[in-house]
Every structure is written in structure tokens, then in C-alpha cells.
Design a protein around this nucleic acid. Structure first.
Lengths: 204, 204
DNA sequence: TGAATATAATAAACAGTGTTTAGTAAATCT
DNA sequence: AGATTTACTAAACACTGTTTATTATATTCA
């Protein structure tokens, strides 16, 4: 009975087709303008078909959110070879901010939007986020152990760093940096200056 | 011809009626569930009537967003009497975070949601935000002048502080602090610890 | 192979959204 | 009192996410 396996494969193919189309539309037009009907039209199926493969729109965007985390995780762990944890922290910060600025829609979905939340809660564990946060936690612990930054609980220190970079990029992505009344280029330069300033402050 | 003035008054009354109803519904049920039809039913008018007083839903939420800024501004400027600028900064931080945690929907509308953005851009100036940010800027300048915090450009310093507190509260409001797998009370305590840690790091 | 069954896909509908248009009733002006 | 402006609304438009009943196809079993 290889038919069952083929069917399973076909089901997965269809899921991938939907996710790929949704991702493409999402990155091109944003969340709101990526409707089930849009996706359906794009893959040349009826809207109702999508509900045979995903229970709702949010589940689709939960998968996209997971894929985005995989990308970010890979980028962050590229700096694993840097032995000095403070230096690694610096690179992690730069990479995080860069990722957010270059993939604002992904970042929004990962850390701002409520769309994937239902699924996260449903799963009782935000594993995608845990992976990235865990890596930050490790780095902070190493920094503290080696006395490279001002002493603090590693959770508190990690939350402080994450909060700062998250705040920095979300103020930009959600267009609140308009308050600076600067050209976009200057704003980005100021963000870099702010990141450096923050990390210098941390140092012992 | 006092009729014209009475009409003008009545127009303003109607605008207030709509805003009051919208605000009430918004704080009770959130943005998405506050529909034009809901507001219309609440004030016992037809949905179309609302469009005689506001050009679209976003304009209504722009007004609510402005009102929220008035509340935050008053809270922040309560600390004007504190002469030591670093101490004042500390109180500003605590007040800001408290405001966000106690009024998450207001905070969301002010600093995260895209709803009021069209109007902000249309007006070419985000005066509501400028007022609060200006106050932070003053305080930072005073801190730097008196050598209370590590030297930096006042804009960079202000952006750093704002980014941190904004990140801290938005990770909480948009439910990303679930990663800590802590009871809500502990998360809030950690947020306080993080704020203190951040402000201590700034000190010379 | 042919009838019965299980699967896949869809058309159409439901209940909602923001917004616009055309038409009516009331208040104001001449 | 008649003409005109103002205030309001019913109904429609073009969407949205989602569900249900139906049909066509593929698979299984006798």
C-alpha cells in the first residue's frame, strides 16, 4: 500500500504550495493584503481547499513565522566561532538589527504581530523563539562569567539586551522614528550609534 | 446669526460623542472589534452618519491616540519638580513602563499600531509624540551636561533609552515574554529589574 | 471488471468589515 | 409660504475569514 505514502507526500506538497504562495504574497504585500482568496487564486484552487490543509489563516502564518526563525537562527549562529562572548554579543546585536531592517515583514510577524500567537499558545511552547533566545542567554552567561559586562542575573541581562534591540527596530519598522525628523539614512546611522552606545555601556 | 455657532457646537458635540463611544469600545474590546457599525449602534445613529464627522476609521483612532498622549504627557511631567535629572530620568522610565502596562491598548495605539500613521504623515508632524520625546530629550541633555551619565549625543542617548523601555513593554504587550516561561508576576518583576539594571548601566 | 466507498475539490452562503451613493425628512433662509 | 440647505439613513459595493452541502474523482473490495 504505497498509495497512502504517496497521498501523504501529495498532502505535504500541497501544504508547501500554499505556504510558498502565502510567503511570497506576504513579503510582497504584507499580512492584511494576503487574503485566503488571494492565495487560492495564486495557486489556482478554490479558497475552501486551503481549509483542507490548514485550520485557519493564523496557522499558515505560524508556519511562515517558524520559517523566518530558522533564517534568523542560522544568521545568529554564524557567529558561533567568535570565542570572546562580548565580541560575539556585539555581532549578534548587529546581525539582529540588520535582519529586522532587511526583513521588516518577517520581523513583524516574529516579534510584533498577534497572528501566530494562538498557535504558539496552543503548542504550550514557543520553540522557535526559545532557540534564538537560548543562544542569547548562553552568550550573556559567558559574558557575565568572564566579567566582561556589569554583573547581573543572566535572564535580566538577556531581557535588557533583547528589549533594547527589539525596541530600536520596532520603533523604526512601525514608523515612530519619524519623530527624529531626519532623512532615513541618518535615522539608520543613529540606530547604529545607539546600538554601539548601548553595548559600550554594558561593558565593565 | 448665532445659529451657525450653535451648529458648530453641535458638530463638535457629535464628534465628541463618537470619540467617547469609540474610546470606550476600544478600551473594552480592542481595535479590531471596535467597528464603525459597533460605534454607530452604541450612539444610536446609522454607520454612514459617522462618515459625516470623520473621513475614516483611522481618523477616529488618530484622535484617540492624541488623547492618550495627553494622558502620558501629564504623567511624565509630574516629575518636573525633581531637580536631579538622572533621578528624574529614573522616574520617567518607571512612569512610562507603568503607563504601558496599565494601559496596553493605549500604548499599542500610540507606539505600535499603524492605524494613526496615515494621519500623522498627513499632518507632516507627529506633535503628540514630539512633546513627550522632547521632554525626554531635555532630561537626557541635562544628564549629559551634569556628567551624570556616560557621555553621548543627546539624540543617541534619548533613542537608546526610548528603545529600551519601548522594547521592554512591547515584548510584554505583544506576548513575547512568554519565552521566559514564568508566571506573569515574575515577568513583571524581571521587567522592573531590567529597567533598574539598564539605568544603572547608564550612570557614570 | 463493476459496484461501493472514501477522498479531494468546490460553489455558494454566512456573518462580518470599511466605505460610498442616492434619496428622504427636517431645519433654515428668503 | 416656498425654496434651499443641512442632517441623516437605507441600501449597496467590494472586500474579509470561514463553513456547509454537493459534485467529481480516485481507491477499494467483491
Amino acid at each position: 500500500m504505497a498509495i497512502k505514502e504517496r497521498k501523504e507526500r501529495e498532502k505535504q506538497d500541497m501544504r508547501n504550495l500554499i505556504i510558498d504562495s502565502a510567503t511570497q504574497l506576504f513579503l510582497k504585500q504584507g499580512y492584511d493584503k494576503t487574503s485566503i482568496r488571494n492565495i487560492a487564486e495564486d495557486i489556482e484552487y478554490s479558497p475552501a481547499t486551503i481549509y483542507l490543509y490548514f485550520k485557519d489563516k493564523d496557522e499558515i502564518f505560524y508556519i511562515i513565522h517558524e520559517n523566518a526563525f530558522e533564517i534568523l537562527d542560522k544568521l545568529l549562529r554564524q557567529h558561533n566561532s567568535i570565542s570572546d562572548p562580548y565580541e560575539r554579543l556585539h555581532e549578534l546585536g548587529k546581525t539582529y538589527v540588520n535582519f529586522a531592517l532587511e526583513n521588516p515583514d518577517y520581523y513583524d510577524l516574529m516579534f510584533v504581530m498577534r497572528a501566530p500567537l494562538a498557535e504558539i499558545k496552543h503548542k504550550e511552547k514557543w520553540s522557535a523563539g526559545e532557540c534564538a533566545f537560548g543562544y542569547l542567554l548562553e552568550t550573556m552567561a559567558a559574558c557575565i562569567d568572564q566579567g566582561l559586562i556589569k554583573p547581573a542575573d543572566k535572564f535580566v541581562a538577556a531581557m535588557t539586551v533583547w528589549s533594547f534591540v527589539h525596541g530600536l527596530v520596532t520603533l523604526y519598522i512601525r514608523e515612530r522614528t519619524c519623530i527624529l525628523e531626519m532623512p532615513d539614512e541618518d535615522v539608520r546611522q543613529m540606530m547604529n550609534a545607539s546600538l554601539s552606545h548601548f553595548l559600550t555601556q554594558m561593558k565593565t
